[in-house]
Design a protein around this nucleic acid. Sequence first.
DNA 1: CTTTGTGCAAAGGCTTTGCATGCTT
DNA 2: AAGCATGCAAAGCCTTTGCACAAAG
Lengths: 123, 123
Amino acid sequence: MAKRTAQRRAIVGELRECDAAVTAQELHERLDGVGLATVYRNLQRLADEGEADTIRRENGEQAFLVCERGHHHHLVCRSCGRVEDVRDCELDGWARKVARKRGFSQVEHRAELVGTCSQCRAA
Amino acid sequence: MAKRTAQRRAIVGELRECDAAVTAQELHERLDGVGLATVYRNLQRLADEGEADTIRRENGEQAFLVCERGHHHHLVCRSCGRVEDVRDCELDGWARKVARKRGFSQVEHRAELVGTCSQCRAA
DNA sequence: CTTTGTGCAAAGGCTTTGCATGCTT
DNA sequence: AAGCATGCAAAGCCTTTGCACAAAG
């Protein structure tokens, strides 16, 4: 089981305070006295344990965020990067229908909504 | 405007024959006498021009595929990687609803369906 | 005391870029 | 002839890994 080190606590703490998804490097910059490799290792582990979700930015960077358990999607602000969890998913019917039509089985789906949040819209 | 070189033709030709999305490196392996950098440059360009679509694999690699113009999604086989274009999109209503509820504007959505194609299911 | 985590630096993997050369137009 | 594409190798980035040391259980 995971040991409770000061670094791990710092990483988890900072991650929880983020509205947007962050990369290991970004988190490393915000934390003092935590090595970059340690940040990478902890984030990877949190993701493996299901404690954190990961997304890929367009440039391929891996960003992490703490989010709800279970099936959900993300609503991302294109301006500030804020991420909101969306539990309300109405895609399953559509997914099944499309899959059946094409002869695919065991369908899963992934979706992401991108928009401009009210705060950024005002600015 | 793009010059018609032998390499570019080879790249585009091979790309069109792919059922699945391919990375620059994979394409480079399949082509003889085409430098890796050239493959990267041409794929990037095709994507910029809208002639090719790009997806990110879990490990962050960028893979390319030729696909339909306009709004569509992808149905991907988790076994063989085959990609089928899906024009039938019923997500807009849902996307708008969710966005409005959260105060987001100018929503776009991205979705991906993953399943097992009939061929792979049989095997 | 044993096990696991951390730091640092080196190594890895994918992608981009600089520069001289060759092919298109 | 002028300009853009190609090749090769070097450089860039993000991420992972090896190893010695430190901390946790």
